[in-house]
């Protein structure tokens, strides 16, 4: 592996693949971010069902987390991507439409990784809520806050503070999971790397470069999460 050649290849020169890899990186980040939003919504729903829901809601949340944590992410991505085409195709057939129809790969992929990591997020948020001390909630009640105000002012901020490290792990999981979207043809970092590796016949150089980009993203998001943790814990005495 010739380092000068590698740098030229992944750089932004005339023979460089830098712009394409950068576009792939942007897609990876976008997919992971959309997945984070979805997983947060699912996680909040699942956690509230587990903590405060009735027996049916609790059973549903329990089934969701058990199944999604025991099934490979790749299968879920395949299910959403290929499954969406058979569902949408059946619906389209009702309207006399015969052509091929499917969710775009990006959307199906984001739904898949969001649903998978949502199962992790349920446990993260549930654990974080349980770490809120009962006394803090009682104090809010004693001050006369109603349920909504109590949730907005006391429970949500405290839960999020406790959940921050876990959310960081979910984010890393989404970043790494988004690499699997390459299997359904989404033009994210891994897919672009495969294209570059194939057309230059230098797979080693490009997979090392892709690995380096993933490391840069994870390390820098680790730093961001650490700073956020410090910021939101500034009112808390360190043990």
């Amino acid at each position: 592996m010739d380092l000068a050649r590698t740098f030229e290849l992944v750089g932004f020169g005339p023979d460089g693949w830098g712009a394409i890899l950068l576009a792939g990186t942007a897609t990876t980040l976008a997919a992971a971010f959309c997945g984070l939003l979805l997983s947060f919504v699912l996680g909040a729903l699942g956690a509230s069902a587990k903590v405060a829901g009735g027996p049916a809601a609790r059973a549903a949340a329990e089934t969701y987390t058990t199944i999604l944590r025991g099934v490979p992410e790749l299968l879920v991505i395949f299910l959403f991507y290929f499954g969406s085409s058979s569902v949408l195709g059946a619906i389209a057939a009702l309207f006399q439409y015969q052509g091929f129809i499917a969710l775009p790969g990006f959307l199906a992929g984001v739904l898949a990784i969001g649903v998978v990591e949502g199962a992790v997020m349920v446990e993260v948020l549930r654990g974080a809520f349980l770490a809120v001390k009962p006394g803090e909630i009682e104090a809010a009640k004693a001050c006369g806050m109603n349920t909504f105000l109590r949730f907005r002012r006391i429970i949500a901020p405290l839960t999020l503070r406790h959940a921050l490290p876990g959310i960081g792990n979910v984010w890393i999981g989404l970043l790494k999971g988004s690499s699997l979207l390459s299997a359904t043809g989404v033009a994210e970092l891994m897919r672009q790397t495969q294209v570059a590796a194939g057309s230059t016949r230098l797979p080693f150089d490009f997979y090392v470069a892709a690995g380096a980009i993933y490391i840069v993203i994870t390390v820098s998001s680790g730093v961001v999460f650490q700073l956020a943790e410090r910021h939101y814990s500034r009112g808390v005495a360190r043990p």
Binding site: M1, K176, S182, F204, Y207, V208, Y214, I215
Partner: peptide, 22 residues
């Protein structure tokens, strides 16, 4: 740190496709 920050797929393709380059 390196292994935990890279997706398994990158490592797998690096070994399967990448090593044949040499």
């Amino acid at each position: 740190q390196i292994i935990r920050s890279t997706p398994l797929l990158v490592l797998l393709f690096l070994i399967y496709y990448g090593l044949g380059q040499f």
